Amino acid sequence: DLSALRVEEVQNVINAMQKILECPICLELIKEPVSTKCDHIFCKFCMLKLLNQKKGPSQCPLCKNDITKRSLQESTRFSQLVEELLKIICAFQLDTGLEYANSYNFAKKENNSPEHLKDEVSIIQSMGYRNRAKRLLQSEPENPSLQETSLSVQLSNLGTVRTLRTKQRIQPQRTSVYIELGSDSSEDTVNKATYCSVGDQELLQITPQGTRDEISLDSAKKAACEFSETDVTNTEHHQPSNNDLNTTEKRAAERHPEKYQGSSVSNLHVEPCGTNTHASSLQHENSSLLLTKDRMNVEKAEF
């Protein structure tokens, strides 16, 4: 173990290094160091905050020279020094078990990766560091076993998940096959086929009936047209017969005018059967003409 005197000496050296690497504005270890034209180094955030307070150039807090945003430059070497100082402080805390008085939040800088452990060898070769390295080497064999167990647990979990997924996939297939086998029997399929065939026959029977009705309507229309044509021909046949009657009536009127007047009046009210309204109107006109002729003949006879 380190003596108290040596611990104090190391602590004083760390404090001196820390004062050199402090920012003059925030009085902390410089984060993202930036250098000016006057070779003074500050935190990048502190300098941008200072420049944004005034429009135009501002003055350096140490030498009062003008500073602009374009004049600022990043210093990589200074950032490396800060990183190495942080590593020294971490090693000091691990070796002594004491917390550094002016320690900052170094938890963000710590890294437990194997590459980081290899890099620590180049920091300080001390008894405390050696003991700590031995402890780490002793704890390393235990870690692979834990990793193997965790991997086995994960693989077993994956296997159970896969088996569950396969079961879920197989179950719908089985149910679907069961439904297909038990849903419709052979008799049901035959009945469905016969039902479809009967429906098709009914459709075939319905369509000819409609065509037959249309044919019957067409035949009825044709018969009505033929009947009207026969009526017209009958009226045409009746007209010459009426003319013959008129000639006979004229002759009778010349011989017996008194008797014919009474008979002509009675004939006005008689309509021949089986004739249309057109034929009756023609008869009325003929009878009126005959009456006028008879009157003329009677007057001539009187004179």
Rank of each mutant, 00 (worst) to 15 (best):
S280K: 06
R135V: 02
Q209A: 11
S216V: 10
L245A: 12
Q53R: 08
E140A: 13
K87D: 10
Q53T: 07
Q261C: 13
N276D: 06
S266F: 00
P144C: 05
V190Y: 00
C273T: 11
Q261K: 12
V161R: 11
Q138G: 07
P141H: 06
T211N: 06
E8G: 08
V7E: 06
L85G: 07
K19G: 04
D66F: 06
V34M: 12
T275Y: 01
P144G: 06
T247K: 14
I206L: 05
P272C: 06
L155W: 03
S126F: 10
V270K: 01
S152H: 03
N131G: 03
Q154M: 01
P141W: 02
T76I: 07
P114G: 11
V298T: 15
L151M: 12
S79Q: 15
R162M: 08
V153L: 05
V153H: 12
A193S: 11
T36M: 06
K118G: 13
K69D: 02
K109H: 00
L282P: 08
K49Y: 11
L50I: 06
Q154N: 12
C26R: 15
E254T: 07
E8W: 01
D294F: 03
M296W: 00
P57Y: 07
T194N: 07
V34L: 09
K222P: 07
P272R: 03
D66V: 03
L136W: 02
L137Y: 03
K55E: 06
C90N: 11
Q125P: 10
A133K: 07
I89H: 11
E258Q: 10
D244Q: 01
S79M: 05
M17Y: 11
E140S: 06
K134C: 01
S79R: 10
H269I: 08
P272E: 05
S263C: 15
S281V: 07
H40L: 08
V34I: 09
H269P: 12
N65L: 03
V265M: 01
I30T: 10
L245W: 00
K64F: 01
A4Q: 07
T36D: 12
N143V: 03
S122F: 15
Q205T: 02
Q138V: 06
H238N: 11
G199V: 05
N157Y: 10
A4L: 11
K19V: 03
Q154C: 00
K87H: 07
I25H: 05
D244A: 05
N105S: 12
I20G: 03
C26P: 15
P61R: 09
T68H: 01
K54M: 12
L151H: 12
S266E: 14
H269N: 13
L245K: 06
S58G: 05
K31N: 10
K55P: 02
Q125L: 09
T207R: 03
E142T: 08
D39F: 09
S288D: 06
L21H: 09
E254D: 03
T163P: 11
Q205A: 07
K134I: 02
S145F: 01
D66P: 00
R70H: 02
K118W: 15
L158E: 15
T233W: 00
T277K: 15
Q209Y: 01
M47A: 00
F45R: 12
P208K: 08
L155E: 13
E142H: 05
L158G: 13
C23V: 15
A223M: 02
E22N: 03
Q59T: 04
G262Y: 05
L48M: 03
S113A: 15
T233D: 09
E271D: 03
V153K: 12
G56E: 12
R70V: 06
T189C: 01
K293L: 00
A193E: 12
E83V: 09
N243D: 11
R295S: 03
L85N: 07
T230D: 13
Q18P: 13
F42R: 12
N157C: 01
E32H: 11
D39K: 15
Q205R: 15
T207Q: 10
K37F: 01
M296P: 13
E84F: 14
N15R: 11
S145D: 01
T248L: 04
Q53Y: 08
R165W: 02
E258I: 06
C46R: 15
R169Y: 01
L21W: 03
K69Y: 04
M47S: 14
K222E: 07
V161N: 11
A4F: 04
D213Q: 05
A16R: 07
E140P: 13
G210L: 05
L217H: 09
I206K: 15
L146N: 11
D200V: 05
T160K: 06
N15T: 13
C63G: 14
E8S: 11
L51F: 06
K259L: 07
T194P: 03
A16D: 07
F106V: 08
N143R: 05
K109N: 06
L268K: 13
I215N: 13
K54V: 13
M17H: 15
K19E: 10
E236V: 03
I123S: 02
D188E: 11
T36I: 11
R165H: 01
T163W: 11
N143P: 06
D200Y: 03
Q59K: 09
S75Q: 00
T163F: 00
E254L: 04
K221L: 00
L146M: 07
Q239L: 10
K64R: 07
R212W: 00
E148T: 02
Q73I: 12
L62D: 05
D200R: 12
L72I: 11
E202L: 00
R135N: 08
Y260L: 08
L29P: 01
S216Y: 00
C38S: 14
N15S: 09
L94S: 13
R6M: 04
V298D: 10
